[in-house]
Every structure is written in C-alpha cells, then in structure tokens.
Design a protein around this nucleic acid. Structure first.
Length: 428
RNA sequence: GGAGAGAUGCUAGAGUGGUUGAAUAGGCUGGUCUCGAAAACCAGUGUGGCACUAGUUGUCACCGAGGGUUCGAAUCCCUCUCUCUCCGCCA
C-alpha cells in the first residue's frame, strides 16, 4: 500500500508509476475521497471537542445544583450529528481503502520501463564448466522431464491427477527422495552459508495475512480458499513468514531479520491451460524454499543483490545453467518495486524456465501489514523494507536438474551435493 | 465438540459510568552520588489521524476487534477473535 500522503503530494509521479505497471488509474476518485475524508474529520473533531468539554462540566454543574436538562438535550443533538458524520466518514474511508489497496507499488528508478516480459533485460548468465548449448543440427535424443519421470518411475502425473486433479504431481521412489533431498540441501545451504534462521510456517493463513503481503484483494482469483474456516492455502511461504511480524514494532538491533523456510505452495492458476501446463511447468501444488528479509530502508537494495546471490549459490552448487533477468516495469508484480527473476536452463524445452523471483517491496507490504522498527536516531517507528526470493522452487528446478543430469542411456546422475542427502548416486 | 475463566501500556498488575492516556511495581533511558560499579534518589518513557500561525502547537481517536446504550464508556450491552482450565475426541 502506498502512503496516501505521498500520493496526495506526488499525484503525477504515482500516475506515471501506475501507467508503467499497466494498472488501472483511479487516482482522481482517490484524491476526491481523500479531500472529503479530511473535511469530515475536521467537522467531527470539532464537534467531539465540544462534546468533551461540555460533558466534563456536567458533573460540576450538577454538584452546584444547576438544572442541566437543556444542556443534556443540546449535547444529545451534538452526539447525533457526530454519529451521523462518523458513519459518513466510515463509508468514505472504506471506499478510499478499496481504491488504495488496488494501487500498485511504484517501480524503483533503476527498473527499466517496458511493456511486458519481452522488455526484460538479461543481467548475467552462468554456465557450469564444460557446458554448451546444443546445436540446432544435433539429433542427440534429449528426454524431457516427463519422459524421464515415466521411464525411471519417479514422477507420476497421471496418478497425481487421479488423486487430486491435473497439476498435482506425485513423486514416487527415488523421485520422492530426490525432492526431499533437494529441499533439505537448500535449507541447510542457506542456514550454513548465508546466515538465515529457519522457520517452518503454517500452510493455511487468514485473510489479514493475505492482505498484509498484497495477495489480497487483487489476486483473490489465484488463491485457493477454504470457506468453512475462512483460510487460504498459501501460494508462497512469503505470506506466513513476512506476516510473522504483522502489527509489531521490531527493535532496530534485531534488523536485518533473515528467515528461510520450506513450504508447499498452492496456486489455482486459473485460466492457464495448454502447452505451458504440461508436467511440472505449471502446477497447482509445488515445493519451495523461500528466503524472507526485513531490513532497514537504507539497506534494502544492497540486500536485494545479496538475496539474488544467495539463490544463485544454490544453482552453482548444483551446477545448473541459469541467467538473471531484471524485470521491466510492465512485468513487475503488483507489490514489487524491483525484481530479478532467475531462469534455469531446460535442454529438452530448449529454453529458460523461471525458477526464482527475488523482489524488494520497499515498505509496500510493511505498510499493509504494519511492520515497523524503532529508529534509534529519531526514536520514531518507521516501516521496514521487506524482501523475498525463492531459494528455490523445486518444480521448475527439478525439470532442469533431471534433464541436465540425464545420461545418453536415459539414467539420471544425482548432483554431487545431493548425494549425501539421497544416499544413492544414480537413478535408473 | 461441551462447560467455565480471561484479554488493560515494554512486562506484571489496579481500575465497574464523570480531568484516567490510564494507579502501583518492575524494566528501559537520562541525571545525582561514586575512582568506578552496585545500591539509593530524581526525572523521563505509547501509537495513529487531522488542522494550522509548523510548535517544548492545538485537537481527535486508541485499554483484544467491531458495533451499540449514554450528555459522558477501559468500566454497561451485543457480535466476533484469541488465550487458559476441565471434559470428550484424536496424530
């Protein structure tokens, strides 16, 4: 959420930001409501002041034996006016918030303006030693992850669909072990090498949490929802982990807070069918290790760079080719100010797959979730900056991993760093 | 799921209709004392909105959340949430 004061003082800046993010502009309505709101507050505060003053005099008047009935009658009408104005105010504030909650975060000035994913820029690329992209003329048979999964009996998409529906993958045998190994490896790696502290969050959250990180109200259609208990299965561990600190004031010396946690992630992916949705490429449930940071505002962009590197380290340890993309304004998500995507290479698809997304939300989420720290200098509470990044999502990563590590015979070698976790070195 | 108890500031804990933003104690910060420290003593110690003459300013709101009664609510009423205890059930 943006600060209404900031919008009031910089309407044209905000208008441009909304436009660059391809969002709808309702600023005029918003500013009009803001003005109405302030007028009403002025009126009610004045009346309340009067009421407070007179009310405090009534006991003394009574004690002095004065007749207070006319004063009471007058105050009754003042109170009626107040409650009338208050209900008008409530209505306006509701409308105002409804618009405010749909205004996206402003892109950072270092984010290139662009229409869509075509305008994203490649920041860097990393290839393991000895790796080269296949030639167009190559007729070497590269199995894709679905074929490998079937052949090696490690992935069963059909029976996953039988159990739950399409998009709910079933891992079997060494596939299940490999998935678990990957999760444990990534968690341990971040804990040992990157100074995160571990959390294991709830997978169902309430609507306040969803609003806090910005999934609600805008993305309601993308969420699962359990009506009976008014709970949402999380689309990412970002939601519960960031909301750990909702409505709290953190001690300055506790910052930066860096958490890493595993969760299953649930996404409805409404309206996405076809080629993109085969196998692991788009699923309703997947596993992800998520990194979340709460930092002081002045550090947040340094912390974003470090966050990306933390995710990269995993891919380098796994020796999987990847590249880093800086998203343009048009591809930036609603709540993000700046975002890098990490894409891993899929030899069978012959293209890059998005495996991680690392974002700085500045104080957009912190304002919604009311997460603050006490500034030691000013002694005043200030909103923290929040960041998060996948480190990483296993589904897309598993595609790259299986395909990259396959042998000409169609076996899969287990990456060296995972062998201690799997206790086998090859899947055949 | 059933029965009961509770929710007040950083913490503990008073307060059941009228200067109560809130007693008291602890904590924390600053000061006095001291070679230094402890003890003791003194002082300070919330958040948010709105306005303007922009201040050591005025004002409003906030005692789990949201409504209501009243001239006036931390205090009375209703709804919800959470916590605790006992019973039942269960991994």
């Amino acid at each position: 959420m943006l600060d209404i004061k900031f919008i009031r003082e910089n309407p044209e800046l905000v208008r441009q930001g909304i436009k660059n993010k391809n969002e709808t502009d309702k600023l005029d309505d918003l500013l009009k409501l803001d003005e109405q709101r302030r007028e009403l507050i002025l009126k009610t505060d004045e009346l309340k002041h009067k009421r407070n003053q007179v009310s405090s005099q009534i006991p003394q008047m009574k004690k002095a034996g004065q007749d207070v009935s006319s004063v009471l009658a007058e105050m009754k009408s003042v109170s009626d006016q107040i409650s009338d104005l208050d209900s008008q105010l409530r209505e306006i504030e509701q409308k105002l918030e409804n618009i405010l909650m749909f205004i996206p975060n402003m892109p950072h000035k270092s984010v290139p303006v662009g229409k869509n994913s075509g305008d994203n820029t490649v920041v860097r690329e990393w290839l393991p030693e000895g790796f080269s992209f296949p030639k167009e003329t190559s007729n070497e048979k590269t199995l894709d992850h679905i074929e490998l999964g079937k052949k090696l009996k490690i992935l069963d998409f059909e029976r996953g669909a039988k159990i739950s529906g399409s998009g709910f993958p079933l891992y079997t045998g060494k596939g299940a072990t490999l998935e678990r190994a990957l999760i444990n490896f990534m968690l341990d790696f971040h804990l040992k090498n990157h100074g995160y502290s571990e959390v294991f969050p709830p997978f169902l959250v309430n609507s306040d949490s969803m609003r806090g990180t910005g999934q609600l109200p805008k993305m309601a259609e993308d969420m699962y929802y359990i009506e009976k208990d008014e709970l949402y299965p999380i689309p990412t561990a970002e939601v519960p982990i960031t909301n750990i600190y909702r409505n709290e004031i953190i001690n300055e010396n506790e910052l930066p807070i860096k958490h890493v946690g595993y969760s299953a992630c649930f996404r409805r992916e409404a309206g996405s069918y076809g080629k993109e949705s085969k196998g692991f490429l788009r699923v309703h449930q997947f596993n992800k290790v998520e990194m979340v940071k709460l930092v002081k505002p002045e550090n947040s962009y340094d912390e974003l760079e470090k966050l990306v590197k933390d995710a990269e380290d995993i891919l380098q340890a796994l020796k999987i080719p990847y590249r880093i993309l800086l998203l343009c304004t048009g591809d930036l998500s609603f709540a993000a100010a700046k975002c890098y995507d990490i894409e891993t290479w899929s030899p069978a698809e012959n293209r890059w797959l998005e495996s991680s997304s690392c974002s700085n939300f500045e104080n957009f989420q912190a304002r919604r979730a009311n997460i603050r720290f006490k500034n030691g200098l000013t002694k005043k509470p200030e909103f923290v900056h929040t960041l998060n990044g996948s480190g990483l999502a296993t589904s897309r990563l598993m595609v790259s991993l299986l395909e990259m590590y396959q042998t000409p015979e169609g076996k899969v070698i287990v990456p060296e760093v995972l062998q201690n976790y799997t206790n086998f070195n090859v899947i055949d």
